[in-house]
Design a protein around this nucleic acid. Structure first.
Length: 360
DNA sequence: AATAATACCAACCGCTGTCAT
DNA sequence: CATGACAGCGGTTGGTATTAT
């Protein structure tokens, strides 16, 4: 038996919210709170909206202290770092970015950051003339000062500091490999055919980008993108994982335990979060491992309870069953990020061997 | 100027987790 | 323990603005 619908769909308004509806919802919640029951809320207010819709509107738009658009470089860094670390756990990522909603971050990632990753020039932020945009501009306190800030993020600065090609955003710190510096060509972006939307492509890219995620750990086997290690090196403890940016004040410790068919992922620090998964999901998650794996990526991605879709970061056979993996994650270390090397030339190194599916 | 293509983002949908009964 | 209801989450869609042809 399926779940009953949360509302009478026939008598519920859908689509964009009007200013009047926003005002009603906002003033009611500010006065009375949600009452812990979103479903009943619209009736109390006299809105012909689904409770879920009210909740979403409040959380994503009307809630105080929300920021819209205008993501800073620092926020870009954090989003990218966390995406690499934990995948599309947008609510978790949003929790690290005050004033941001998961929906906002998700949209931002899907429409911009992913493309930045491949060096796709993105257009100037648009000034949409609708009602929401007006609100947005009003609340957009931290909008980037100019699109230069954005375009700079698209400029590749070689080690000689000369701007050369569009590549990885300048201040987004991506994993780098201990490779001789070779400037990659800009990655072509297209919405058609093999593209970055393909998770496998993303995985390949990030894996190639991510031969090392900790400067404290180095294995010569990682040189030249040889990511395989022998069986004996499957447990990593107390590896440092630096994520964040220089000005971030958030510091957490991440601990992952994989044992007894259970995965636990805990973070402590300014904000404490705890995740765990167990049962068949873990098996699914961990299945398919082989004898070879990539320790550096395992370091990078301490959470083995990746949600579906994150396994692309590992590739096949990179997680071992019943191993206990501990990793500390320090957010906001003095170094810029998870990826340790902060020159953009380095940031782009990993791209050199990246190729699209079907491409040589 | 008209049309098509692209980019962006608010909102919806459906699933899962949690809690009360 | 089973069931139902709700909250929360992530993926997806649809509308609209902007840009390209």
């Amino acid at each position: 038996m399926g779940r009953a619908p949360c509302c009478d769909k026939a008598n519920v308004k859908k689509g964009p919210w009007s200013p009047e509806e926003d005002a009603k919802l906002k003033s009611y919640i500010e006065k009375h709170g949600t009452g812990g029951n979103w479903i009943a809320l619209p009736q109390k207010i006299g809105l012909k909206r689904c409770g879920k819709s009210c909740r979403l509107r409040w959380l994503n738009y009307l809630r105080p202290n929300l920021k819209h658009g205008g993501f800073s470089e620092e926020e870009d860094n954090i989003i990218c770092s966390l995406y690499v670390s934990i995948g599309s756990r947008w609510s978790v990522i949003a929790a690290q970015l005050p004033g941001r909603t998961d929906n906002d971050i998700k949209n931002y990632w899907n429409t911009r950051l992913k493309k930045k990753l491949l060096g796709k020039h993105r257009r100037e932020p648009r000034n949409r003339g609708n009602y929401n945009s007006i609100i947005k501009q009003e609340s957009d306190v931290n909008r980037r000062s100019s699109t230069d800030g954005d375009s700079s993020s698209l400029s590749l600065v070689h080690e000689n500091n000369s701007t050369t090609q569009q590549c990885w955003p300048q201040n987004i710190n991506m994993p780098v490999l201990p490779l001789p510096l070779t400037l990659p060509l800009p990655l072509p972006y297209t919405d058609h055919g093999p593209c970055f939307n393909d998770q496998d492509s993303i995985r390949k890219l990030l894996i190639k980008l991510g031969g090392r995620f900790s400067g404290d750990y180095y294995h010569p086997a990682l040189d030249g993108l040889n990511l395989e290690l022998s069986d004996g090196q499957q447990s990593f403890q107390d590896q440092q994982l630096h994520v964040g940016s220089s000005s971030s004040s958030v510091c957490t410790t991440t601990t992952v335990n994989i044992s007894n068919n259970e995965v636990q992922f805990a973070q402590s620090g300014d904000q404490c979060q705890y995740f765990s998964a167990q049962g068949s999901g873990v098996n699914t998650l961990l299945q398919g491992h082989g004898s070879n794996f990539t320790p550096s990526i395992e370091e990078l991605v301490p959470s083995s309870n990746f949600p579906q879709g994150l396994e692309f970061l590992y590739g096949e056979g990179m997680i071992d069953h019943n191993k206990i993996i501990e990793s500390t994650t320090n957010w906001g270390e003095t170094s810029t990020s998870i990826y340790h090397h902060n020159s953009l030339a380095s940031n782009c190194q990993g791209l050199e061997e990246f190729s699209y599916p079907g491409e040589q």
